[in-house]
Design a protein around this nucleic acid. Structure first.
Length: 349
DNA sequence: CACCCGTGGGG
DNA sequence: TCCCCAAGGGT
């Protein structure tokens, strides 16, 4: 074993965090942790891991759950397709594998929400199979250590780093090797201001020797954000309000929300009250209109307001909207944006 | 392949 | 305030 491996492994043994999914090699828990940690920091994901393991101790428990409940547990973590795919895959494992987690790379990769990284992570950590887990940490560590300038978000870059990672894992303990490299990237070789002053491999680090640490890794694509204007309507009927389930190929799929109109450009408060309201057939008093809230997503910027309406008289609900008692609102999974509006309206969790 | 899918922390 | 980006995957 060369110095790179030895030094990283020694560093890992001393510095590795005590994380709940590292207590055993339960493939279900490893898989769950990997899905939660996709594009998510450990500190943000930890509590969700505890929550899921407590509610669903086994993959069969998760398979038997209702999607609404799974999404509710996922609320606030973002990228909700992860929760929907997690649930769908649990059903597949329960039905096709009789509740026993598949133990080969191909089968793991075939699960919904599991791509090359996650399949390699589960295969190596849970089953000791020699597949390199190539995540953002590995791109960063390898690009810096070896001085690789190929953009990590290009197909050539992905191929190059994948091949290098495959060579590096040969003859090693796969699960430990992958976790050591990732942990090193997450704690030591961090994106901004990496801790080169006490780095265990700084002497052989190409980028450090050449003063290029701030230039690597190279990324070429930039995401563009689109602006949308959401106007939520709170129909207050005393003890209940109206909710709506999001569907279609859009953000927050299968989550609930307050009835909404969307525009490409901002509406004035006066226009808001004369617009095509989500529900047209009731008599309402306008109680308040909130200020504009800016909610930033990875590819969108949502500008939103809450229009608080008090419904007069009886309401015969002929819309596809759901009438929900105020004390039950917290049972429904909602986006952070809706959660904040509900809280400001005194209908929080 | 290009684009889409959330949220929160840090510089 | 703005920008980056975090144990990526789906379409």
């Amino acid at each position: 074993m060369d110095n790179f491996h030895t030094n990283i492994y020694n560093w890992y043994n001393i510095n590795k965090r005590d994380l709940p999914w590292r207590k055993d090699r339960n493939p279900y828990k490893i898989w769950l942790s990997e899905i939660i940690l996709q594009q998510t920091r450990v500190e943000q994901g930890k509590n969700y891991f505890y929550r899921f393991v407590e509610n669903y101790p086994t993959v069969n428990d998760l398979a038997n759950a209702h999607e609404d409940k799974v999404l509710k547990l996922w609320q606030g973590l973002g990228y909700y397709s992860r929760a929907r795919n997690l649930h769908a895959s649990a059903k597949i494992i329960a039905s096709q594998y009789n509740g026993t987690f598949p133990n080969d790379y191909k089968s793991i990769l075939a699960l919904k929400g599991v791509g090359p990284y996650t399949a390699a992570a589960v295969a190596s950590i849970a089953f000791n199979l020699p597949y390199p887990a190539v995540d953002g940490n590995i791109y960063r560590v390898l690009s810096r250590y070896y001085g690789i300038e190929t953009p990590i978000d290009s197909s050539a870059g992905k191929k190059e780093f994948q091949q290098l990672a495959e060579e590096l894992i040969q003859g090693q303990d796969p699960g430990m090797h992958n976790q050591a490299l990732m942990e090193f990237g997450a704690l030591q070789c961090v994106p901004k201001s990496p801790k080169c002053e006490n780095c265990p491999v700084v002497e052989s680090c190409f980028t450090y020797k050449n003063g290029l640490v701030a230039q690597l890794p190279v990324k070429e694509k930039k995401t563009k954000q689109r602006h949308r204007y959401f106007y939520y309507y709170m129909y207050d009927m005393g003890d209940s309000i109206l909710l709506d389930k999001r569907s279609g190929n859009d953000i927050w799929q299968n989550l609930y929300q307050l009835p909404l109109i969307e525009r490409e450009k901002a509406l004035s408060d006066a226009e808001l009250l004369h617009a095509d309201l989500p529900v047209k057939t009731m008599q309402v008093n306008v109680k308040s209109i909130s200020g504009q809230k800016k909610h930033v997503l990875s590819h969108q910027i949502i500008h939103a307001k809450l229009i608080y309406l008090e419904v007069q008289g009886n309401f015969n609900n002929q819309s596809p909207l759901i009438r929900v008692n105020k004390k039950d609102i917290s049972k429904f999974a909602v986006s952070r944006l809706v959660e904040q509006f509900l809280q400001e309206a005194g209908l929080g969790q």
